[in-house]
Design a protein around this nucleic acid. Structure first.
Lengths: 168, 168
DNA sequence: TGTGAACAGTTGTTGAAAGAACTATTTTCC
DNA sequence: GGAAAATAGTTCTTTCAACAACTGTTCACA
């Protein structure tokens, strides 16, 4: 079944450069993400941080002075990282986070941000604001809100319910 | 100057979880990209391809029977790849592309897709369509178009004019 | 005509992602 | 109360991406 007719490429109709309209959306999304991300990489790279690491620190700061178990932190990160351990190794080696095992459940490793970590975030704060301005400062708040809603709608069926990375 | 006032986090107003409204847009964009990309990875991974490699093959097919210089291909790819050479090495080793140096300009390496490469794309064609359906089939064409326009608008100031990855 | 600049790719190194297999700890439940 | 299952992280290995330095080729122009 589903005979593989060669050259059934759905091209030459509405979407000259794409296999389908969905593909165009995805490629536009990818491209836009890539361009905006390049600014993040530029800024955070100057401080030997990845965007993922910055977000981990940001989440830890917002939890501070509470702590977060490793996997709970992983679930809140934007893109799943199967390499939590080593990412945290790097942050710990630099003194930006602290790890501790509690006696009540010796399986979980509780993570918290250190004073040095918070200081680093504070030092970055202005540069981050500038970057945000360069990223999307040209979009009105209304357009930004519109974009957010469309993005949520776009990924909604693919959203993993066990992932509590955002307000519900 | 720009005294680093600690805790000037701009939070607690409109954006409880974010440093700013732009950051929310970026994180939503990142998350949506990540979710949609996971479907691409799942499909292409079964054939030992990355999404980037698939796109390279797609572009080569659309140029076929013409060839493309390495850097021209790189410019058309969605995310800039400073590692063209080794990516093409892998595709060439599998017989999916061909490389040749012409006598008129021995600096440039012309790339073309082989019959095996085109066959692979044809075999993938139906599965790719299914994936597109699962990615964004739930969005109406109008919503898709709206999203595309917002994405273009979002990255427009960051778009490198030397990058001709799309119609203009 | 020949020297320096520009161009097109390649190579080498280092660091980080992916995925699977593994260890240690706690819970479940008969 | 003890084996089996679930939970929480870690480690191993292979692969991939980033960055810079390098080779070879052509062009500009004095």
């Amino acid at each position: 079944m589903a005979q593989a007719t060669p050259r059934n490429r759905r091209r030459g109709k509405q979407h000259p450069h794409f296999d389908s309209s969905v593909q165009e959306v995805f490629l536009q999304l990818w491209r836009t993400y890539d361009r905006l991300k390049s600014l993040e990489d530029e800024l955070f790279g100057q401080h030997q941080l990845s965007a993922q690491q910055y977000n981990a620190l940001r989440l830890l700061r917002s939890a501070h002075p509470e702590t977060l178990p490793t996997l709970a932190l992983g679930r809140r990160l934007i893109s799943r990282s199967p390499d939590m351990t080593r990412m945290l190794d790097r942050l710990e080696k630099r003194g930006l986070i602290r790890r501790e095992r509690r006696t009540e459940n010796r399986r979980v490793v509780e993570i918290s941000i250190t004073a040095a970590g918070r200081l680093l975030l504070d030092e970055l704060s202005d540069a981050v604001s500038d970057m945000h301005e360069r990223q999307l400062g040209h979009l009105s708040k209304a357009r930004q809100r519109q974009l957010i809603e469309l993005l949520k709608e776009a990924r909604q069926p693919l959203e993993d319910e066990t992932c509590d990375w955002l307000e519900g």
